[in-house]
Nucleic acid binder design. Structure first.
Lengths: 154, 154
DNA sequence: CGAATCTTGACTAAAAAGGTCGGGAATGGT
DNA sequence: ACCATTCCCGACCTTTTTAGTCAAGATTCG
């Protein structure tokens, strides 16, 4: 299980856009450079983010992208769904387990485990907004900022 | 993000073995048939599970596999690690984000989000044992059994 | 008009997932 | 001792997904 590059990249782009919220739009090429993402790939991701309604674009010189709404109103879940489809794919639909082990037969003790994990991950993503990410001061990887404690207490 | 077939299959196999714990070993071929997993694939998975010390094998006729310890002492995390390596891959190691966005530069506001998700998923997997899965009566997919509430309250 | 910028879809290369195959090495029953 | 049964292991193959590239076209601003 892992975070794909699409998700990583899109999150970086959105974070950078969030930082520039209220200011002039940022061109794809500038975003690519500042976030260290391949330029042509950025366009693709931004298009998806636009189709999902998370960013708005302006063409022409001085054009570019900006957030469609305040950082606090955009969740990571929305970003992930925009670029990668479902946050968590339903395993029961892919491997139906023949006669014994999945819901298609109505008797299944394993599925609830996957279902609940899906819920857990999905609600985690829904709980994190761009504003959360911005609010936090740069910190070493692995440090758990305070706001995360509320979403995912341990 | 999704559950791979290796994980799904391995979980089925382990659950079946757990059900037969204390009884005679089960041959790979029988396991394959009862869990509806390709036979040659099963062997591969069982070998990995054995190398990880989760099952023991017996050769010869009447041979087969059985759990190496009681179902309550085997977690899903151990199963996942046995067949798929890390439960959750560290995204920071793959995409280092150049100068700005990751720990390599010591300033990173996004990484904690992935780190915490990793922790969340990992500890979820660690919290579920084969005994938990066995204890639950067959139920429709999506139903959340009581014991899951303790591990992943919602 | 023309430069800057987005838009789209097709294309490709590399990696991972998913699965297959075959030859060999133990083991237990008879 | 023999032999069927079963595990053991690595190499191989196919398909899907991921990651990235490219080029032609459509808008917009100055």
């Amino acid at each position: 299980m892992k975070i794909t590059s699409s998700i990583e990249y899109a999150t970086r782009l959105m974070t950078t856009l969030a930082r520039a919220h209220g200011q002039a739009p940022l061109a794809a090429e500038r975003l690519a450079a500042s976030d260290n993402v391949p330029a042509d790939y950025v366009s693709q991701l931004l298009s998806k983010l636009r189709r999902a309604g998370l960013v708005v674009s302006h063409r022409g010189s001085a054009g570019g992208y900006s957030l469609s709404r305040p950082p606090a109103d955009i969740t990571l879940g929305q970003v992930v769904r925009a670029v990668d489809g479902d946050v968590f794919e339903d395993v029961c639909e892919r491997y139906d387990g023949g006669d014994k082990d999945c819901r298609h037969q109505g008797g299944c003790t394993i599925s609830p485990v996957w279902q609940r994990l899906g819920t857990l991950v999905t609600s985690y993503f829904e709980g994190v907004t761009l504003a959360h990410i911005l609010a936090e001061k740069p910190a070493d990887c692995g440090a758990a900022p305070a706001w995360l404690e509320k979403i995912a207490p341990k």
